[in-house]
Structures are given as structure tokens and as C-alpha cells.
Amino acid sequence: MSLDPRFLQYPQRRHGMDHDRYAWSMLETRAPIAWPDGRPLALWINVCLEHFPLDAKGEGFKAHGSMTMPYPDLRHYTLRDYGNRVGVHRVLQALADHGLQASFAVNGEVAVRYPSPLRRIAATGAEILGHGWNMDHVHFGGLDAARERRWIADTLAALSPYAPGGIRGWLSPARSQSSHTPELLREAGLGWCSDWVNDELPYRFETAHGPLATLPLPLELEDRFVIGENLHAESEWADQCIDAADFLHDEARALGAGRLLALNLHPWVIGQPHRIRHLERVLAHFASMRHALWNAAPSAIASRAHPALAIMRPERTLPYRAQAPRSGPLP
């Protein structure tokens, strides 16, 4: 038994990365970032509003949270739907109670199905991010570019009524990309994306159509991952969020360099009645750090960190109104 000789060949072994998407650099050796008013820690809270279809196809792969039981998997469909009916309102109330702002990454189909929470969110002026059509439309390696382009366009079209300032940021379902997702996002007029979790501060990401920014949104601290995949207790998740905030605050002070705490939330997880008080404890801790925190919208954070990318709006944008929002599964 032996392997093909190419298994012992290393054509991409060179200084830097083994691809051309971004330049290699270490966070601590970059020029320090200063947030407004000299605050050490920027805080970005993002809330995902997601739709998990009952007839999940799992093309590419099934996102965590998708249907797992024989059809019709009513238990998981309704547990996810709970987030959009009940959970989101608890999360919105908790944010308001603590005077904190969040962005909302929304599946296009959620906006079509449930305009009411979108109207409430839009009324607060919160930033809306594209989050793909639904959680059964993952942008996987091998996905045809024409289909993917249409999913992105339909998502932005569905969300645009709730984003009068335009949509600049994107989070793919399950943080999955095809090999051409970055090009399609840039082509669609987006300025930044949060799929890559390889940093803690924004950095420049190359596409064939010009740069995007990456604004990292950590996977390993989000409620869905810690509670839903690791099966940690809610109180443990809250401890982890608080530990992260304290750690980054202290590091920023010690190094004289701004740090970013980005926390991703899912109302279908944290909006349950037995969980919401743990989010409230986390938010209360953030509120207690108010004088050290810059709680901002993600596009503001990305622009502040990367003035060179502050354009965040390539010249070319798609005519969003040209395509009517759809509610059915896309081809």
C-alpha cells in the first residue's frame, strides 16, 4: 500500500497562506486600533433570525439546527420557529432593558414570512445583515454560482425594506461558503462578511472583484455552539461570555490596543424562558462595563478599524427592487 506521490508534494508551501484570500499577519503585531473616546473594548452583539424549513434537503450539508427526524420533523421545525415567534421578543426586550444595541443577521425568508419582528427591529434603527435565504440554503463548495448569486440577491431584496441605509454586512448560513461566495458578495454590493472566524479584529479579504472586509464573529462563544452543541449549562455559557469580556478588556488595557468582543445569539436557543435570564446576566455585566465599552453597529466597527475599507460600498450594486421577494424554496 502506498499513496499517490502528490501526497508528499507541497506546492502551496510558501511564506504566508496556502491561498490568496488574505495576507498573513498576527493580531498583536499590527498597528493598534483605537476605538472612539479611547475605550478599550468594542462590543458587537449580533442576533440571528433563522428559518429552518420542514422539508430540509440538506444539499451540501445540513446546518446545525436543521431537521434530523423522519419527515415531518415537527419537533425541530417548531422549536426553531419558536425563536421567531417568542424568543426574538425576549431578546429584544433584554437588549432594550440594558440599553444595548445589536445587529440582526436575517434569513431572507424570515423577512418574507414574518415582517412584524423585522418592522420592530427596523424601527430601532438596528443594522441588518444578510444571512442567506434560509438555513437549508447553505453556500457549500460545489454550489453553482448562478444559483448562489440568485440566493444572495433574493435575500438582499427581501431584507432591503427593513434596511433604509442599505445592507453592507453578510453572515452565511452555518458560516459556510462556496469557492466563489466572496466574489458574489462583493458583486452584490456588500462590504464585509463574518464567515471566517480566524481573527478577532477586522481585516482585508481579497476577491476577484476587489476587497471585502472580514469582521470576525466567534463561533465558540455563541449560544448555539456552547449550549446547543457543547451542551454546557446556561450559567456556564454566561460565565464564558463574562470571562471573555473581562479578558479582552484587560488585554486591551494592558497592551494599549483596542479589542473587539463579538457575541452571536440565536433566539431559538437563548430566547427560551429558562435561558433568557442568563442572557440578561451577561447583558447586565456588559452594562456595568459601559464606560469601557464602545457598543456599536458592526459596519461602524469595521469602518473604524479599517478606514481604507470604509468605502464598504463598491460602485456596483444590484438593483434590489428588480426581483420580488419569494417565499418558496429557491431552485
Binding site: 463548495g141 461558503q177 462556496s178
Partner: peptide, 8 residues
Amino acid sequence: PRPLPDVL
């Protein structure tokens, strides 16, 4: 585990 590129 995911189809390449496994960004995550």
C-alpha cells in the same frame, strides 16, 4: 468535514 472550502 464540510465540502471544500471548509471555511469554518
